[in-house]
Write a protein that binds this DNA or RNA. Structure first.
Lengths: 215, 215
DNA sequence: CGTTCGGGCGAACGTGCGTTCTAAATCCTA
DNA sequence: TAGGATTTAGAACGCACGTTCGCCCGAACG
């Protein structure tokens, strides 16, 4: 709302730039130098105005204690980064998450928004869905499913399961009942699959699904 | 890889916490106080080790110039913020996005990860899905759909449509054919709906779907 | 036993850096 | 064009804060 003086805009820009490569703020004298101001008092004067108008916050008597409050605009959010390990399809084995994948930064990864991030953001990985075989879990071709790597599931968990005999990968709700496993589709209109417990490999539990719809 | 001493972990934690509410770093003496260390030299000693092991970076002779390099883990990503306007269910009208909603910051909003963000992040809003009536679009109860507000859709777009006569909201692919509209379910197993063109109100086109699966 | 070494103390030193005061230059508005 | 408000100058002042140096203590080691 208040007008932005040329000087103040210049200072604001410098603050932003400086803060991006170092992660701390410049001193008054550094601002003075960068903005070609001939006195520290002028810097202080303008900083005072910037604070009054709500662009920055300052803590008195503390070095480099300038906080950019306006810069919350281009929204920065803390997100969890999740590696995309590959694809999941009905007829292909589910890729096994290797420990190396988590450290590997140069492979595909996905930014998980806070709304989708579980309490514990560890051991997560993502898979692209290929084909239309996961329809009963409301998942379709092109979707991305986010999984937490785990070998044992608890009843009711939605899991990514590999059925060796059928050579099939699927997403279902997991229920262990004695020596067999019941796999319940998420879609109530569809029938459960019941298989011997030793014919199920649980690769992880589903924590989120993301889909981008073509424009 | 290097062992983390108790002291050093304590300091690291304090650095992180301090940096979250102020956005600058503590001074050596503040670390000393917070971690109950009786000398600044001990703080400096441990900071030196932390820097050697790559946990932090320091700029000599500059106040509070500590950078957390390990803390790049909780990845900061620029995301688009999208207001959540309400719910969409089969029998209820679709909430109309008001201009005010975009400016309104204190209502619910959603952080859209870059992978789901369209080229143009304007006029977006989100709706919670209630009930199981959108199953044919692979959308189920509890999902969040992200829409771009638009009144006219092009053929093939996935749209949120309100059918006044049926009093029904639905997500379908939109095809205008002469004076009637064909609404194709995303699920190929289901039948299209064909209605007169004046019995369709398009409220927006779907750009993304997000689902959090209960643990 | 003396030595080395990781870790902790405490104090002093010197400079980085915010602050303040006076005065001048510039810009408005009447 | 006078005179107030805004902005700029320059220079001290003084605390904040990083740095350094000598010393102590217990464990490991020969």
């Amino acid at each position: 709302m208040p007008a932005i003086s040329t000087r103040q805009q210049q200072i604001l820009d410098f603050l932003h730039d400086y803060h991006t490569d170092r992660s701390y703020m410049p001193s008054i004298r550094e601002i003075q130098l960068a903005c070609s101001i001939s006195s520290t008092s002028v810097v202080d004067y303008n900083l005072r105005l910037l604070e009054r108008d709500g662009f920055i916050r300052r803590s008195p008597d503390i070095s480099r204690a300038i906080e950019l409050v306006c810069e919350s605009e281009p929204d920065l959010v803390e997100v969890a980064r999740v590696p995309i390990l590959g694809a999941i399809a009905a007829g292909e084995p589910i890729p096994v998450p290797e420990a190396s994948a988590y450290a590997d930064e140069d492979r595909d990864s996905l930014a998980l928004p806070p709304e989708l991030t579980p309490r514990d953001p560890n051991n997560l990985y993502a898979l692209r869905v290929k084909g239309y075989s996961m329809i009963d879990a409301f998942v379709t071709d092109g979707d991305i499913v986010v999984l937490r790597h785990t070998r044992d599931a608890r009843n009711g968990d939605m899991v990514a399961a590999w059925l060796p005999m059928q050579e099939e990968a699927t997403l279902k709700h997991f229920y262990l009942e004695g020596d067999h496993v019941r796999l319940m589709p998420a879609n109530p209109d569809m029938e459960p699959i019941i298989v011997p417990a030793d014919n199920v490999q649980v690769h992880g539990k589903v924590v989120a699904v993301m889909r981008r719809v073509a424009a």
